[in-house]
Amino acid sequence: MEKKSLKGYLYLLPALIIILVFTIYPLIKAVLMSFYEGYSIINGSFDAIGLGNYKELFSDKVFRKALTNTSIYVVFVVPCSILLSLLIAVLLNSKIRCKGMFQTLFFLPYVTSVIAIGIVWSWIFNSNYGLLNYVLSWFGIEAVPWLNSPDYALMALIIFSIWKSMAFDILIFLAGLQTISPDLYNAARVDATPKWRVFLKITVPGISPMIAYAFIMGMINAFKVYNEVFSLFKSSAGPANSAITVVYYIYDKFYNSADYGVASAAAVVLFVIILALTMIQRAVSDKKTA
């Protein structure tokens, strides 16, 4: 092995500078700002250091609404997307024609601009001329004000999000299924094991790390939902903030209200939640590979 020299840092320098300035420094600064009370970004002065911003944050009804919305979103989007994707992935992994075409097609939502396709969904959800209400009218259901009523706004967001998150889930499940040894399936065939037993005893355990991964990534992404809201509700958080999310709240606090302290406190809460979820995910995947 060559002896150590500082030359390595020369190669790392460009990436290191960007990471220090635009990732590490802002992380530290956001934590600090969350404790500054009466902070001014112009001269960097503040009145006191304390938990004032956090108190204000947790007593803010809008922030609590954002957390509740995120929980509802997680409960619906994550399991629905995982179950549907699992079904599709298992079928795609069996002997079928046009496998490549199907796979390409199912992944399309992942590469598409959320903003553009969100606008398309807002057109589908349109209460007067939308496609969805037209289809529902076949079943005698009267026009639903999807995007104009606080009662339905979150549901519209959830439908759009399930559509969107399936692409990623199908892809990683399919990748996981391909790692299961075909010997296991051949042995099951020799023993004439029923198909549902094969599914529960071989397929599910085989891709359980992927299911765990999809579950936690789904939760992490739920906290970061932003573009979806922006495009569905014409740059708002839905009627009466009914579809507000944590990231939308952060954006609104610092960009529209210039309340840097509370916005930073919300950012730190977001960071802590995501850190905890990532830790759980790492622990789970380490256990599986050990």
Partner: peptide
């Protein structure tokens, strides 16, 4: 370790920068 930091929390300071 920086992979665990949500980019969305960095926008506040980066905007100031």
């Amino acid at each position: 370790a920086t992979l665990m930091i949500p980019g969305e929390m960095l926008i506040i300071t980066n905007f100031i920068t």
